[in-house]
Simulated assay, not measured.
Amino acid sequence: MKRTPLYEAHLRHGGRMVAFAGYALPLQYTSIVEEHRAVRRGAGVFDVSHMGEFLVRGEEALAFLQWATANDASKLRVGRAQYSMLLNAQGGVVDDIYLYRLEEAAYLLVVNAANIAKDWAHLQGLAQGFRVELEDLSEGTALLALQGPKAAEILQGLTEADLSKKRKNDVFAAQVAGRPARLARTGYTGEDGFELFLAPEDAEAVFEALLAAGAVPAGLGARDTLRLEAGFPLYGHELTEATNPLCTPWAWVVKGEKAFFGKEAALAQACQEEVVGLVLEVGLPREGYPVLSGGRPVGRVTSGGYSPLLGKGIALAWVERGAQGPFFVEVRGKPVGASLSPLPFVPLK
């Protein structure tokens, strides 16, 4: 397994290490629920250095990204970011990504760790014919995510940048604890927060400074329960190569008024299934559990777990479009009542 620059720091702080996307990363330090609540009430810091980063630059960088991504990259001004997707020729999702415009003709793509090689090959293929240069920065980039309602307060004490003037999806350069960084007001928890792009040699010092300033170290377990409460997808679960994004709650990403790779295939498909949110009366739903209605299977859970804020089990599931309730989730062989829920599952600021 690969190790991030924070591997020794995780061990020092009691991180319980597990394998994830080829990396050794902390599942938790104390407990998943404690870390989850710390992020919702205060601030937690996650090591997400396993994520991939691609630099796209050149005179046709924008034209290339308009073709390669489903969202409208032309809407991005310098210093702004957007959620987007890469589609395949069948209209399925190669990956969901974040795109940052760093300069007039320079962009940064952040991709899922397990998809780095696949995404790189996909983008290299699409770049043929464009005057554009792609560079894989993944190995030389450390990434921290400081998330929670107190994130700005904690970070402000470590940087000269005026964070009160930074909006959601802003990206900018700044010093943090005396180390150069690129900051983005983005994240994967549904809370306010910042992601910090750093040189690997600076990551541990910044991580320790954030903890000393009041952030709690948080692991993969809390990251997953937080994103689930926020109703965010996880690639390989809600989104796959066979998923039509137009059949999901994240269809807003797909901008049909522009041309992009995979568009016609996605538009040509009828949605036989859709993604819904479910709250269980009792028990915990897990990936793969059947969703039932009228005594028959109508879908399956793609992500499920315990919501510390609701005190109940919650799930994202693919179900037959138009399926009528009442719904049940088969938990360990027994049907448990489940109600449809709007996303996000909990109120978020």
Rank of each mutant, 00 (worst) to 15 (best):
H13A: 11
V18F: 07
A19H: 12
A19V: 11
G22N: 07
P26V: 12
L27P: 00
Y29R: 09
T30L: 06
I32Y: 04
V33Q: 13
E35G: 10
R37D: 14
R37H: 10
R37M: 15
R40V: 03
G42D: 15
V45H: 11
D47Y: 05
M51H: 12
M51A: 11
G52D: 00
R57F: 05
E59R: 15
A63N: 09
T69S: 10
S74I: 10
K75Q: 15
G79D: 10
A81T: 14
N88H: 12
D96Q: 09
A105E: 15
L109V: 06
V110Q: 14
A113N: 03
A113Y: 01
A114F: 12
K118N: 09
L123M: 15
G125E: 03
A127S: 15
A127T: 05
A127N: 07
G129T: 03
R131L: 11
L134K: 09
L134S: 05
D136P: 01
S138F: 14
A142H: 09
L143Q: 13
G148S: 07
P149D: 03
A152S: 15
I154D: 08
L155M: 12
G157N: 14
T159Y: 14
A161V: 14
L163K: 13
S164Y: 07
R167S: 12
G178F: 13
G178E: 13
R182F: 11
L183K: 05
L183Q: 05
L183D: 02
A184M: 14
R185T: 04
T186Q: 05
G187T: 07
G190K: 02
D192R: 11
G193F: 01
F194R: 07
E201T: 10
E204S: 07
V206C: 04
F207V: 02
A209E: 11
A212W: 09
A213G: 10
A215W: 08
P217I: 02
L220S: 00
A222S: 15
D224K: 13
D224L: 13
T225N: 11
L226W: 01
L234C: 02
G236W: 06
H237Y: 13
H237G: 00
E238A: 07
L239P: 04
T243W: 01
T243H: 01
N244K: 05
C247S: 05
A251E: 08
A251M: 01
W252R: 09
K258F: 03
F261E: 03
F261W: 12
G262W: 03
G262R: 04
G262L: 05
E264R: 09
Q272V: 05
E273N: 05
G277K: 06
E281L: 03
G283I: 10
G283T: 10
P285I: 01
P285N: 02
E287T: 15
G288L: 12
Y289C: 08
P290I: 08
L292R: 12
S293G: 14
G295I: 08
P297K: 14
R300S: 15
V301D: 09
V301Y: 13
G304A: 04
P308G: 06
L309T: 08
I314C: 01
A315R: 02
L316C: 06
A317C: 05
A317M: 02
W318C: 04
V319P: 04
A323K: 09
E330H: 03
E330N: 06
V331F: 10
G333K: 11
G333M: 10
G337M: 06
L340P: 08
S341W: 10
P344F: 06
V346Q: 02
K349W: 04
